[in-house]
Nucleic acid binder design. Structure first.
Lengths: 214, 214
DNA sequence: ATCATTTCTTAACTTATGTTATAAACCCAC
DNA sequence: GTGGGTTTATAACATAAGTTAAGAAATGAT
């Protein structure tokens, strides 16, 4: 499972994990900020009766452990989708940095706020949009984020997510995700092949996602 | 509409509004942090086809404008439910404070993170829980928050929300909220009267909300 | 290549929630 | 207190999404 976290007071550590591993376990004592360097991961929660809700899909550069300051235990576990590489900082290290250059902390506040915005956008999706809209928006969001990181190839993006994972992110079932994907494929809006997803009709996808009309 | 915001560079201003007024308008230039002092308010978003999603229900002491640092325009409008009183700080003022006592900023970071946790909890509700569970959790959440602020009377809390508002918060319709409330009333789990809500059977409500079983 | 496992597809059927409509209850201004 | 607007209750009906199940396709290990 790669170099593990929480082994003493090392300022900065690096680690890696295979696909489908728990990277941060529920209840782990963390005290560290984890940054994903390579690969895809999920931050998710389980309900008491075993349903899963994916809270965020993590791409390279994203911060995995966000609760570090609020609580000493990991509340939302993180698991790898693909093989991943990550690094982590001790929180004490972050505090040292900000003591030296206080302005830096605002970058960090921005990060917190923008992750809140992201989760509120998902809230609107789950509360007020149907399955097709939710899927369209998820794909466009991934397309944008991957593009910003130089990880997309035009309209084609890597897409390592299982349908069950997409379902857990969108508050749907795997069967329904399959239905909606079929519909989008049959409308020639998108195409999937070998872990890649291609947007064939960006306008149509954006229309479904309500990215146009005011 | 009370003393308005953004009238020059005043460090701190106070204001008030009647019930059902826009307190922060979409697109307003804000640059200020608004703290609710009295009354209830809503932070909400609209979809392009006019559906509303309530992102958070604000109680006295809560921060209304959260986007101030990320963007100069209000993205999620805030409207009063009851008559409200609020005060606001210029962001520059916050920066001054944190320059003087840098440790204070961590309180602020905590605030950001805990509001993200709150919205992620809602995300789990909307993605993976049914209408009855969502309503039970909303009521328990309000009961807890009001209790912490000394605004509840044992099992009885003020409840100024319209069913439509509850529906917009839970991703449901007003009609369905009415149905679920009836069911909870008929099960003698709760009671509503004159803008007050009383939890008659806390155990049953917590069981529905999945606050027990692991 | 072959087998085992996982994931995806599809169909038939069920259900929770949405929609529409109407009447009753409530609230407030005069 | 009366009257008009808002909010809630309820019913009948519609539909998006869930459930279950079984086979096909993809993936991974040997």
């Amino acid at each position: 499972m790669g170099a593990s976290l929480g082994e003493g007071a090392r300022r900065k550590t690096a680690g890696s994990a295979l696909a489908r591993q728990q990277v941060l376990r529920l209840g782990d004592t963390s005290g560290r900020i984890v940054v994903l360097r390579q690969g895809w991961a999920l931050r998710s929660a389980m309900t008491s009766d075993g349903r899963r809700q994916v809270l965020s899909i993590l791409l390279p550069g994203d911060i995995a452990g966000g609760e570090f300051l609020l609580r000493d235990k990991v509340r939302m576990p993180v698991q790898s989708v693909t093989p991943v590489e990550y690094c982590s900082f001790d929180i004490a290290y972050l505090k040292e940095i900000t003591d030296k250059s206080p302005a830096f902390i605002w970058t960090f506040v921005d990060l917190c706020l923008s992750s809140r915005e992201a989760s509120e956008d998902r809230l609107i999706d789950l509360g007020r949009r149907n399955a097709e809209q939710r899927l369209a928006r998820l794909i466009l969001d991934l397309h944008r984020r991957l593009g910003e990181k130089g990880l997309s190839d035009g309209a084609t993006i890597p897409f390592p997510l299982r349908q069950q994972t997409v379902a857990d992110a969108l508050g749907l079932t795997q069967v329904h995700v399959s239905r909606v994907m079929r519909s989008l494929r049959q409308s020639c809006i998108l195409q999937t092949k070998a872990g890649q997803l291609t947007i064939l009709d960006m306008d149509a996808l954006m229309a479904i996602a309500e990215f146009y009309e005011t």
